[in-house]
Amino acid sequence: MTSLADQDLDSLGGPLSILTRQKRDHERLDRLLHRLDRSAPGVEEQTTLQAIARLVFPHAFAEESVLWPEARRVLPDGEALTLQVEQEHQEVNELWTSLEDLPPGSPERAEALARLTTVLREDVRDEEDELLPRLQEAVGVRRLRLLGVAWEAVRRTAPTRPHPVVSRRPPGNALAALTLTVLDRSRDVLESGARRFPHLHVQASRASDGLAAVAGRVEHAGLLRRGEDPSTHRD
């Protein structure tokens, strides 16, 4: 079993393969985490975190919706393997949410950022060194490419922000997808507009906060926690 990090494009199944797509995102994440290490507290750090969020949360949502159900279907120990990764995803969601209440430059924020970086790197290694190579051994190249296309379609239409209350498994995450995606991506547009047009910052911020409140209410709908493993959530 060979880590994705040590495989070339042909070994991974070509550009359409889910393995190629996963490795590409993981390499981009590594670059962003190095940038985060060098970012000054404040605007620079927040800008880098936003770029990481736009990469990490759609990526993870697509894994939870497309990849991990497949792993549980074809691998004898797929339940245990995917549960470990889902727990890492849950911790990332919780850490990210906690950052909203921690002031820039504070020791508590630095500690949360350090833990966030550690968990993200552990998640990549668990996926590239074990879970995805195991999936590679269990299914053919054609299936890897079909999974890649499905994963990409979900990733492009997935929520872009942390949602720690929502289930990490279907059907809860699938039920949450449409509403939370619309809310998250609407907030992204508002915040992007505020950066381009600073005179609209106050109005955009208020609108974004309103959408965040709606998302918070949506998250707590009981249906959206259906399917999760009880050990994933600690509340």
Rank of each mutant, 00 (worst) to 15 (best):
G193H: 11
G193P: 03
G193Y: 02
G193W: 10
G193E: 11
G193A: 11
G193R: 08
G193V: 12
G193M: 10
G193I: 08
A194N: 09
A194L: 07
A194Y: 05
A194C: 04
A194R: 06
R195N: 11
R195G: 09
R195F: 12
R195M: 11
R195P: 06
R195W: 13
R196T: 08
R196I: 09
R196C: 07
R196D: 11
F197Y: 11
F197Q: 06
F197S: 02
P198E: 06
P198F: 06
H199N: 11
H199I: 10
H199S: 13
H199D: 14
H199C: 09
H199E: 15
H199G: 10
L200Y: 14
L200K: 08
L200M: 10
H201Y: 12
H201P: 00
H201A: 14
H201T: 10
H201D: 13
V202D: 14
V202T: 14
Q203E: 15
Q203H: 15
Q203A: 15
A204Y: 04
A204T: 02
A204L: 04
A204H: 04
S205M: 07
S205F: 09
S205D: 13
R206C: 06
R206M: 09
R206D: 05
R206V: 07
R206W: 12
R206Q: 08
R206N: 09
R206I: 06
A207M: 07
A207S: 10
A207R: 05
S208Y: 08
S208L: 01
S208H: 13
D209G: 12
D209F: 14
D209S: 13
D209T: 13
D209Y: 13
G210S: 00
G210K: 01
G210P: 00
G210I: 00
G210V: 00
G210E: 00
L211N: 05
L211F: 14
L211A: 12
L211T: 09
A212S: 12
A212P: 01
A212Y: 10
A212E: 09
A212C: 05
A213K: 07
A213M: 05
A213P: 01
A213Y: 12
A213C: 02
V214N: 01
V214H: 03
A215H: 04
A215P: 00
A215F: 02
A215S: 05
A215E: 02
A215G: 07
G216H: 02
G216Q: 03
G216R: 05
G216T: 04
G216C: 02
R217T: 15
R217A: 14
R217M: 13
V218L: 06
V218K: 03
V218R: 02
V218Q: 01
V218M: 01
E219V: 03
E219C: 05
H220N: 00
H220G: 00
H220P: 00
H220S: 01
H220W: 11
H220C: 00
A221V: 14
A221R: 15
A221L: 15
A221F: 15
A221K: 12
G222D: 07
L223Y: 14
L223A: 13
L223G: 11
L223K: 08
L223S: 09
L223W: 14
L223E: 10
L224V: 01
L224R: 02
L224I: 03
R225N: 13
R225Q: 14
R225H: 14
R225V: 10
R225P: 07
R226Q: 11
R226Y: 08
R226E: 10
G227M: 03
G227D: 07
G227H: 08
G227T: 05
E228F: 07
E228W: 04
E228C: 00
E228T: 01
D229T: 04
D229V: 07
D229C: 04
